[in-house]
Simulated scan of single mutants.
Amino acid sequence: MHFLAAILSSLSSSVTSLFGKLSYVLGATPTQILFIRFSISFIISLIIFLIFKKSFKIKYFLIFGFLGVLNYGIAAYLFFYGLNFLNPAFATVIFFTNPIFVLIFQWVFHKYKINFLSIISIFISFIGVVLANIGEANLVNDNTIIIGTLIVLGSSSLNALFITITGRRIKKINSGTIENVFYTFFGTALYYLFFSLITKELFSIKYEYLNYGFMLAIFSTFVPLTLNFFALKKLESHSLAIIMPLEIVFASLLSYLIFGEIFNIIKVLGFIFVGIAPVIENIKKIKDGENA
């Protein structure tokens, strides 16, 4: 069930680039889109928080609010900024090195014992991501590549840190998924409110931005994070990180259905690698389930 939740999270996240591009066509800036996206996500989570009559706990707000800023604030902005130097395909390859960082952080901070299947699955997943995007990479010059790569690696490592910390915290504390999601979006919404006020981009938001912002809030933000927090109750952080690149597969399938994108053999092979990586990482669990 938790494994399926992680896959459904990747499926839901796959519409991010679609609605993001449509938002940019309308003239919205990254800050404006992110502000709308997380403000709406916060409102939705607040309504659910109140419906279920949850009590506000400042300790958990400080923890998950900070984590929200770390991932959805700083890491997300670094990725968007990195796109100024790299094309989206190559930036995606760099970003999905995050399972490697997750495994390193688990080993450094939590003394997690790295097993052979985890290492193999991460390697296969990354090779799959590279193959899936190799035909689309259109690099410019070495200096640009180095700058952009370092920026996106920074985004990837912060995202990995977010997954690692939340994976451990969620298993230890008493708060449920509803509270954790609410606290995360509360902190992130405050961050982007403050940021958009400083840049004065808040005052130039147009009404037409709200439609795609709402879609991003639902399908790219609220649903994926809720499913991920639920999945992390049982899954290890690196297991979730290995499933995340499935977003590329789902996004490409949507592009095929909506825009008629053509697949080549290398890209399909990459999809296969990305798809089998989570299965390899969970072989032991699958066998244990069969023998139970």
Rank of each mutant, 00 (worst) to 15 (best):
A5C: 14
L8C: 13
L18H: 03
L26I: 06
G27I: 05
S41N: 00
I44K: 10
S45Q: 00
L46Q: 09
F49V: 03
F56Y: 13
F56W: 00
G65I: 04
G73C: 06
L78W: 03
F80N: 05
Y81K: 06
P88D: 04
P88E: 05
A89Y: 02
V93D: 05
I94W: 01
I100E: 04
I104C: 14
K113H: 02
I114R: 07
S118G: 15
S121V: 09
I122N: 10
G128L: 04
G128V: 11
V129Y: 10
V130D: 03
N133K: 08
G135C: 11
E136D: 15
G148R: 14
L153F: 15
S156P: 01
L158Y: 09
A160C: 03
I165K: 06
R168E: 12
K172Q: 13
T177P: 12
F186H: 06
T188M: 05
T188Y: 00
S196Q: 15
E208Q: 11
F214G: 07
L216I: 04
L225I: 09
K233S: 11
K234H: 01
S239K: 12
I243K: 05
A251K: 00
L254W: 02
S255A: 13
G260D: 02
I265V: 11
V268L: 12
F273P: 03
I280Q: 02
K287L: 14
E290V: 15
